[in-house]
Design a protein around this nucleic acid. Structure first.
Lengths: 244, 244
DNA sequence: ACCTGAACACCGTTCAAGT
DNA sequence: ACCTGAACACCGTTCAAGT
């Protein structure tokens, strides 16, 4: 904004909660989860540890803020944001994929999403995700009495699925690397005790050939089918009641 | 077994990986997640830290073993174990509830299940859960091509749902305490910005009155409906092919 | 009000040394 | 082979002291 170089500006910038969160995300993205320490933050921000604690309560709070920031970004920047575009189903898929892709871009995110869910079940992160899934669920036309239940099912599936997918997709790495990972796992399943793990042995082949992203969407569709089967949309009672 | 008192027997028992895991679960159950430290273990087991590391690789491995032990127990001790009893649907519900109840009995378990899912997506814990859900899915009669997909959807939902439910149910506490928790959350939702969170405001009432366990089962049924709708059971092709 | 940075009370893990 | 326990290299957090 002024003529100073960004460098000096950066150093002179007042320390702010936002700037701390931003730096935390940077550290998580570039160096990984274990690199996010108060000392690393003080280094990058050129301050003392007390300064950090003046702006944020503790490490957990910072992790929550970092997670929320990334989730908010992932859900806001979806290209198809403007309403009225696709079906509610498409919107639900878009939100879900937004989270899925965010998790593959930020390898630390999956663990944090899960952690937030258990640590602060109705904190900002969960709230945001629920809201973004719940809105299209509402326009799906299911009776109001099942809004909470159906949305919960979708959200819980999404979070469970993204949690597991994180590592296998993890670093984009090479296609070969991914094939090797799947091959190793698949082989391991085939070596399992047939008495203890008949099922896993039986699906070892499917495991090797499956595509995480595609399978993720298949799960979404499965649940959407369940929802519309059990709760057929009401006869479009005044399509503008809630608007969007 | 001998005439020695249990006390002295305990002290004289050889240190074993199993005994360490057992003690870890004890610690987690009685004092909580933060209490599980190597120092606490050496105290209870009357050894040095080196002895612990002789039997287990590191803390993560111990956590995984403790989680797996509790999960194995939860899935093994279900009353309706003998096959042929209920429908596959009932069996799936029973497995799911076994995990759900285990999470409410062991408050630390939810976070660990989620952590295992991200840290070691195909480790023993996940494998065990997949196997126990996958078997009844198979007897459901869906085509083999979708065994992996449908089982994944169920498992991911179950783990996501148990992750969130953990805290609210958490300590059995009193019915009043639970009502207060739900009331507070419900009120907080009503105070949200109507522009940002119209959906959460709309379902605040349902939130206050919902029952976690019941809602959990509703989600399972939703997915089961989706599965059988999209993949109608095949005409009972020789009901004994895979047996159980 | 906002920040400094030394100090405190912990961690997990290693490893020479013992039996 | 199995165990001891001091030592190492870290943590998050606090708090008197500064501006």
């Amino acid at each position: 904004m002024a003529t100073r170089t960004r460098q000096s500006q950066r150093r002179r910038q007042v320390l702010t909660r936002e700037r701390i969160v931003e730096t935390a995300v940077e550290l998580l993205d570039t160096v990984g989860k274990d690199a996010l320490t108060v000392r690393a933050l003080t280094g990058r921000l050129a301050t003392g540890s007390g300064a950090i604690y003046w702006h944020i309560g503790n490490m957990d709070e910072l992790l929550e803020a970092a997670t929320d920031a990334v989730v908010a970004d992932a859900l806001a920047t979806r290209p198809t944001r403007p309403a009225g575009a696709g079906s509610p189903q498409d919107e639900i898929r878009a939100v879900a994929l937004g989270l899925f892709d965010a998790v593959t871009e930020h390898p630390w995110l999956a663990a944090q999403l899960a952690a937030q869910l258990t640590r602060n079940p109705w904190g900002p992160v969960t709230l945001r995700i629920f809201e973004n899934i719940g809105r299209p669920v509402r326009t799906l036309g299911v009776p109001q009495g099942v809004w909470f239940t159906t949305t919960s099912t979708l959200v819980h599936y999404i979070l469970g699925a993204t949690a597991q997918t994180s590592q296998s997709t993890g670093v984009p790495s090479s296609e070969a690397e991914r094939a090797e990972f799947l091959g190793t796992a698949s082989r391991a399943w085939q070596d399992l005790d047939p008495d203890d793990y008949p099922f896993m042995r039986a699906i070892a082949d499917q495991m090797r050939e499956h595509d995480d992203r595609e399978q993720f969407l298949t799960g979404i569709d499965l649940i959407l089918t369940g929802i519309t089967t059990l709760h057929p949309p009401e006869p479009a009672r005044r399509s503008g009641e809630g608007g969007l």
